[in-house]
């Protein structure tokens, strides 16, 4: 058995897993072939259709860059560890360091987790969460209830502050002001919180909520950092 460590940016292609157990061994190529078989969307982001490693993806076998060893012919022993990392040459690495879904899972009340929020993207001062449509969130008339949108805006701000600080920060909401501009009927809502100021003890954010690309609600939030 070989363990494959998946970077944050590719976890959605591996069912959300950060570690995968792979039966194949022998060479790195055999390990990557099994990934192609079992997680093809992950596999094609690591290697192109010729089977070559993508230029800005680095693969480490037991901590050593495979390009410094024998490339895909590098031996991988049972119990070995293969780590996939995007190289610094490409884009932002913030999302590889910060795991927003873990912050969500570990720090919120059960009823908030039941909203089914997931972290889509985070940046140096922002976070986008998806609030999936559910009939349970609908109020009379069939539209998504404002309470659900406000909870999502609140949560998105916590994730944005945590992303900016590189990990979960305890905080308490001081103010949350929301305008509901259009009804949400049957579609997911993308909730993006952008920090307009992040101080030592206070954080301020602007939150947009969109469904099918259209603004449905807008909020401004203020937090005391504990």
């Amino acid at each position: 058995m070989v363990t494959v460590l998946v970077p944050g940016a590719l976890r959605t292609e591996a069912g959300g897993e950060s570690r995968l157990d792979v039966a194949a061994g022998g060479t790195l190529r055999a390990v990557l072939d099994e990934i192609d078989q079992r997680w093809p969307r992950l596999g094609r982001r690591i290697r192109d259709e010729r089977g070559e490693l993508r230029r800005f993806v680095n693969v480490y076998v037991d901590g050593e860059d495979c390009r410094m060893l024998s490339g895909q012919d590098t031996p991988v022993a049972g119990g070995g560890e293969v780590q996939v990392l995007p190289s610094v040459a490409g884009g932002s690495v913030a999302q590889e360091v910060f795991d927003g879904d873990r912050v969500l899972a570990e720090n919120f009340a059960p009823w908030v987790r039941e909203l089914g929020l997931s972290v889509q993207e985070t940046g140096s001062d922002w976070a986008t969460l998806r609030l999936p449509w559910s009939d349970r969130l609908a109020r009379e008339g069939g539209a998504m209830s404002g309470q659900a949108l406000m909870a999502a805006a609140d949560t998105a701000t916590v994730i944005a502050v945590s992303a900016a600080r590189g990990g979960f920060v305890p905080m308490t909401t001081v103010q949350l002001s929301t305008t509901f501009q259009r009804p949400v009927l049957g579609s997911d809502v993308l909730v993006t919180a952008r920090l307009t100021k992040l101080g030592r003890t206070m954080a301020f954010a602007d939150v947009t909520m969109t469904a099918k690309g259209t603004l449905v609600a807008h909020a401004t939030t203020v937090y005391a950092l504990l």
Partner: peptide, 23 residues
């Protein structure tokens, strides 16, 4: 993606959700 290569995605709900095949 400069890291993870090219792909093509489609949306049938005007951009709310995008999908990409496994292969």
């Amino acid at each position: 993606s400069s890291h993870f290569g090219p792909s093509v995605a489609t949306s049938d709900d005007l951009g709310a959700c995008w999908r990409e095949p496994d292969h």
